[in-house]
Amino acid sequence: MESELTTDRNWMSSTSSSAAEQRHRDRGLMAIGLFKLGKAVFFFLLGFGAIHLLHKDLGDEVMRLAAALKFDPESKFVTLLLDKVDLIDAHRLKQISLATFAYSALALTEGIGLMLEKVWAEYLTLLLTVSFLPWEVFELGQHPNWFRLSLLLINLAVLAYLIWLLKRKKVQPRVHAF
């Protein structure tokens, strides 16, 4: 009877410590991790789409898409898209798919690491976010629009949060449970 009581106490204490750990999860890291996982899925699908288009006439595919979306085939947008698509050959499409799969794997690594609250993932995300900022600012300067501005603001918010979190962790040393 006493061993059952001890077992119940051990189970209760392990359950309550597990629940306490879950309550103390950093919501900011969870949000950034989910964002990164969403990016991973998006870029994986983009890479898969590029492979799917490998041995097809891209001009025909653009025209089918324009018709499905009820775009005027004579519009400036469709004409511009057709001009750009003519520049893409099979080799370039393979390069695009490889790059998007690589970026997807990187975003997946970031996302999982952040969801698990790994410090290496925080530094990796910080490094990658900083490395893409100059490109984002350049693109915003060349072709300003709300989408690019939103991406830049999201990445600046992620950067600020990670810097704040890492500084806070440096000041507050970890307590190791034995």
Rank of each mutant, 00 (worst) to 15 (best):
Y161E: 03
L58H: 02
F44E: 01
T129A: 08
A68Y: 06
S18T: 10
F71R: 05
R64Y: 06
R174I: 13
L80M: 12
I32K: 00
L58V: 07
M115T: 14
S14D: 09
M1K: 05
E117F: 02
K76E: 14
R9S: 06
R168H: 06
S16F: 09
L87C: 08
A105E: 06
I163W: 03
L54I: 03
T15V: 07
D60H: 07
E74K: 13
A66Y: 04
L133K: 02
P134E: 03
K56H: 11
F147M: 11
H176W: 04
E110D: 15
R25A: 11
T109W: 12
L82C: 05
R27A: 11
E139M: 10
V171N: 00
E4C: 07
K70H: 13
V175S: 04
V158A: 01
P134S: 04
V158D: 00
G141H: 05
W164S: 05
F101E: 11
A20E: 07
A90D: 14
N155I: 05
E122L: 07
L81Q: 12
W11H: 08
L133Q: 10
A66E: 01
R92S: 15
D57E: 06
F132M: 14
L69I: 07
K56G: 01
L87A: 14
D72Q: 07
D86Q: 15
S16Q: 10
F44R: 00
